[in-house]
């Protein structure tokens, strides 16, 4: 890739740059009311080239991003779009020098691969299923199923924490491992129950030690009700045991892959 970003643009006085949210088909229209990241947030615009458009907004070059409102705006723009049209989401924080650079360096240079990816995503969006164990319920399961846990529990019962520190650590570690094993089994169960509604799945890392399931699905937006119903059945099966949340439609963050830059 050639160096080509040095030319000063006419807007250097104001020092604004172009924040890029994602790439969509060229026929997507922006909502004039929608506002992006930055302070004050600017309107969302589309920079078009061929079959593609990039959703962008102007931001000041001298102000760092990363406030909760910025993160929320990035996600909101892309997620709202994903319900209507395929979108290739960019990771938070992508900026080019201006709309011309967006068109030339981003859209023109990668037109065919982006176009192909968008066609593949047509009609699909990401859904994220998150489940958290009810602590009492999962501990009760473990103590009931695991003799060693039950025995360690007896050893620490009504004894001062200081005097049973080693037993407590052993018990806690055992619980932690038992939850991890349950997470694996329950994640598999969720995949079995929901997998056929998804084109692709991505099992995410847990973000909490009592996470039961954390999976992203790429699924047809038209089949959203089927997915909701299947999650509802799973929730019924796991009643009082796992608290489930379903997010989406979201932009397919988990399913776009950045190719390694080619060294030429």
């Amino acid at each position: 890739m050639a160096q080509q970003t040095e030319k000063p643009r006419e807007d250097t006085a104001e020092q604004t740059v172009c924040y890029v949210y994602g790439i969509v088909p060229a026929d997507v229209e922006t909502d004039p009311e929608a506002r992006g990241v930055g302070d004050p947030p600017s309107p969302i615009e589309a920079v078009r080239h061929g079959e593609l458009a990039a959703l962008v907004s102007e931001i000041r070059a001298d102000r760092p991003l990363g406030k909760p409102e910025d993160l929320a705006a990035h996600a909101r723009i892309l997620d709202a779009t994903s319900a209507e049209a395929p979108v290739l989401p960019l990771r938070f924080g992508a900026v080019l020098t201006g709309s011309e650079a967006v068109e030339r360096e981003l859209l023109a240079e990668h037109h065919d691969e982006f176009h192909a990816a968008l066609q593949e995503l047509e009609g699909k969006a990401e859904y994220v299923l998150k489940g958290r164990y009810d602590e009492q319920a999962v501990l009760r399961e473990i103590v009931t199923e695991n003799e060693e846990a039950a025995q360690l529990r007896e050893e620490i019962r009504d004894k001062p924490a200081d005097a049973t520190r080693n037993e407590r650590i052993a018990l806690g570690e055992l619980i932690n491992n038992a939850i991890a094993a349950k997470r694996e089994a329950d994640t598999q169960h969720a995949l079995d129950a929901l997998g056929e509604l998804a084109t692709t799945v991505n099992v995410r890392e847990p973000t909490h030690e009592e996470d039961a399931v954390h999976v992203a699905f790429l699924a047809e937006v038209a089949a959203q009700q089927d997915l909701e119903q299947a999650v509802g059945e799973l929730a019924g099966e796991w009643r009082d045991r796992v608290e489930l949340r379903l997010l989406g439609p979201l932009a397919p963050y988990d399913f776009v892959v950045t190719q390694q830059p080619q060294q030429e």
Binding site: Q3, Y19, H74, R91, F92, G93, V95, L96, R204, T258
Partner: peptide, 19 residues
Amino acid sequence: DTILDKGLVIDAYVRVSLV
């Protein structure tokens, strides 16, 4: 959980720095 470590990375395609 989603937008910070997932999604296309622009600077792999284009020589720009992240803000």
